[in-house]
Design a protein around this nucleic acid. Structure first.
Lengths: 144, 144
DNA sequence: AGAAAACCTATCATTTTACTCGGATAAAGT
DNA sequence: ACTTTATCCGAGTAAAATGATAGGTTTTCT
């Protein structure tokens, strides 16, 4: 039940972009340095976020990335879903309809209910936290 | 964020043992057949559960496994923890003290709070469901 | 004795992970 | 125009994890 670096790096990078929201394009080089991530690897991850429409890229010198939406409108759950696919502890609860595709036991499976509850509780947490929330948290720590 | 088969098989097997609790030793062969698991692989998994004290084994003909505690006293969280190690989306929240071991950024890391919340919400769900709960669920479905 | 079962160690094919490498393309400043 | 700074794109790759399988030993019941 571990998150891969894709998810962690994705959230770290998006959080970094949120901290600089409104300051023009931010280069991946600077993001990678601040967050301690391989720049080249991060490039690949940002491609996914760009295709999903969460970030916009500006090529060329002085280029970089910016969020396409306000940090209040992007949740940690959004990012994780893009980076790692739908959150689900087992494939048979990927969607509410996936039931029969993955398990012939179908409705008779009592453990399936457990995994669905786990999925929902994870999603509740992740969807309730926006990038803006993280930025607020950062500011609070800086004040101390 | 997927559970491995270790966790799933472990819960399935323990659930099977719970259904037969009080009926003497249950052979892994029968468990494996009912749950659709490789018998030989399941053997390895049961070793971990035995060492952790959740099951007792009786060797020889007519032997098998039994739970060491009442199904009400064993939670899904117990089993998953044995099979997959402590539940935590990232290593820096394995324990509340793991902070500094895994991340020099330590207290300044705002995402760490997110992972701790996810960890707690998963554990809340898993620790709240006992094997007895699953058996009750099974009976309910049988009645329909 | 013979069968059934747990127990133990080793090996292995496949997949996933977390990268690296090498370039192509694009825009800005000089 | 040229250089620099970026994003963009596809391939390759070493290491680890996963999900087993293989083959044998020991124990106990009938």
């Amino acid at each position: 039940m571990k998150l891969s670096t894709k998810g962690r790096y994705g959230v770290a990078a998006m959080y970094d972009l949120a901290l600089h929201y409104g300051q023009g394009p931010i280069s991946l080089k600077s993001v990678a340095q601040r967050q301690g991530i391989s720049e080249h690897y991060l490039e690949q991850l940002m491609g996914a976020l760009r295709k999903a429409g969460y970030v916009k890229s500006i090529r060329g010198s002085q280029g970089g990335y910016t969020l396409t939406k306000d940090p209040t409108q992007i949740t940690v759950g959004d990012i994780i879903t893009i980076m790692e696919g739908p959150i689900a502890p087992v494939d048979c609860v990927l969607t509410d309809e996936a039931e029969n595709t993955y398990c012939e036991r179908a409705g008779a499976c009592v453990t399936r209910g457990v995994w669905a509850k786990v999925r929902d509780s994870i999603n509740n947490v992740l969807d309730s936290i926006s990038l803006a929330d993280l930025c607020r948290e950062d500011k609070k720590q800086g004040d101390e």
